[in-house]
Design a binder for these strands. Sequence first.
RNA 1: GCGCGAUUAGCUCAGUUGGUAGAGCAACUCAUUUACACUGAGAAGGUCGGGGGUUCAAGUCCCUCAUCGCGCACCA
Length: 727
Amino acid sequence: MIEPNIDPKLLKPYDPKETEDRIYKLWEESGFFNPDVCIEKGIADKNAETFSMVLPPPNVTGTLHLGHAATLTIEDIMIRFARMQGKRTLWLPGTDHAAIATQSKVEKILEKEEGKRKTDLGREEFLKRVEKFAQESHDTIVSQSKKMGASLDWSREAYTLDAKRNFAVRTAFKKMYDDEIIYRGHRIVNWDPKGQTVISDDEIVYEERKAKFYTFKYSSDFPISISTTRPETKVGDVAVAVNPTDERYKDYVGKTYVIENFCGVKLEIKIIADEVVEKEFGTGALGVTPAHSQIDAEIAMRHNLPTKQVINEFAKMTVGDERILGKKTTEARLAIVEWLQSEGLLEKEEEVIQNISTAERTGGIIEPLPKLQWFINVNKPIKERGNKSLKELMLEAVQSKNINIIPDRFEKVYYNWILNLRDWCISRQIWYGHRIPVWYKDEEIYCGIEAPSEEGWSQDEDTLDTWFSSGLWTFSTLGWPDSNAPDFQTYHPTNMLETAYDIIFFWVARMILMSTYILGVVPFKNVYLHGLVRDPQGRKMSKSLGNSLDPLELTSKYGTDSVRMSLIIGTGPGNDSKMSEDKIRAYKNYANKLWNITRFVLSSTENFKYEESFPSYTERENILIKEIDELIKEITKEMEEYKFYLVGEKIYQYTWSRFADIIIEESKEIFLNGTDVDKNSRAQFLLSTLVKILKILHPFMPFVTEEIWGIIPIENKKLLMVEKWPK
RNA sequence: GCGCGAUUAGCUCAGUUGGUAGAGCAACUCAUUUACACUGAGAAGGUCGGGGGUUCAAGUCCCUCAUCGCGCACCA
């Protein structure tokens, strides 16, 4: 039955392996990922509405996982849709140096493969190793992104740590320094003994663990008992705080007690009254350790108490005798408990569930330590911005609806974060990252975009929190600090920021902070937050669980289009989704179905020439045309509302249950027994509807649709990716 | 402690402004070389987590409880 001049490819099942790389190359060579080329070639109008978006830059810590694949798919759908609507469309790729994450990864490799530490190599040599690793990760990421079909404008690719971004970082830092938004301060910070660096509040992950809650007295003649889960810090106590209204301890307030020998350490404890102490908690008395607790430091400040550091950067004790000196905190804890017991001072030992602070990237247990660090002041009024603080600017951007968050329930999450926000610690004691643009000479400090020209200045050793540079991303990638840069003028603020909801604080909020402060405008008009991709049991995919699916493996097994479809369908904004191979398989069958539909349509319409506006449809076809056109109208609206999960499913439904099962089936009868008028009308309908299906399906399944488009006999056709979205 | 989300067919999820419960996958029955077995036709499957309320009408709105998950805060 099949005519010999049908493309022979159609005679076999659809083969994504043979197709995908070839199609991607075709797209890349066309240059249409680049909006400038689209304008040059008459695809998009210079004055057309813009649609711009930055890709959340993946960390150069290794390879892409399914979460990245989901991001790439959702964003590619947005971009391809906008491009087909004739918008001036830019999707900008890049990667993130992910300072701590990348450095600790390389440190691990170095330790494992060569048994060396970074200090064995020295800063310069170690950084070379990190850069090599980063480059390799980058290359993998780029090739994986292409594999996913992402229509990113590679000519504009950026890196958070390249020269242009470094210039932007230095410029931003200098402005903030001059405005006194950035300051250097001595405070209790989150020290990660494992990563040997300070981290911000947001980089802490809380883990529930069992702990012992000890109640004891410093000495037998001390009048008040206190409780703690960390007895080892008690050698750094300078006071006991009670609630001012607590009758039990009223008489002691103001007195100072000297304990000559607390496990070998001399303590001077003053009894003070402070509102923050809860009468009901523990004994209602709090041992104040200013050097190793945020709250205690605040109490100490109010009461003018000294700070006594007893733990160092390696989480080891710096005071006492051989029982604790130089010991790890966990060992010192046992030693002190043992001593308390032997002295008869220990009154109670309870088991409690405690939230322990760990470092997000290294897993190290956070040790609060007093340190001199750089901070961003989130409360200082900024003259240039109507005397509003960063907190207020961030709040206003969303409250004013200048930024629209989808789904909107995340607005509340965002407001709550701002409410609890404290000054952002931005300095890190690691080597990989943007060096702080501050120089010291004796007592002098100099902050500048470039190093001071005179001799004798030495630069701050620290680097910046990786999110500092990510915060500038929407504009540092578009030519800023040159505010006349054409890209910056055309594409900023960006239209859309699409990312997973788990980096709303790290990234989304920081971009809003940087943009509203530095530029006075929002970085993006819309935020679309997607959920996390989980395994069939709903668990987070992780290497240690061994349940993570490799996107590359999946795409080579089932084809990229099927993987994309399964990542989209059943995935509403903000909701986590479950991924299984069964689901992907279903969409592999769908791609093949479409392939066979094409085979049928082309082989049965061979003697008919496709006419874009066919004048003489019969009544039956007019009804069918109305049906598909109404569907297109409906899904176009839903595309504009970002309901991709809905659209994907509707197109699937229509092509399979309607077009293939009903329309094609009845066509067989028409082609066999119908009049010439009926046959002609049907043939035109089949061809024109296939064209419509290919167009609306293209953003979802770009490879198979482009491949079929190439086979269909239509005159003067462009690539499907730049065809106009049907109306 | 504060807040958010989920709970609908065996599984995964839709269900727009309230108007007769939907899809995919799986399982079941039939068809057997068809554009396509990566198939077609058919049937089956649900007191929409429990309870209460508003309404002519509630999966949908309100209250409440339960279970699961998440975020933030606390963590002496």
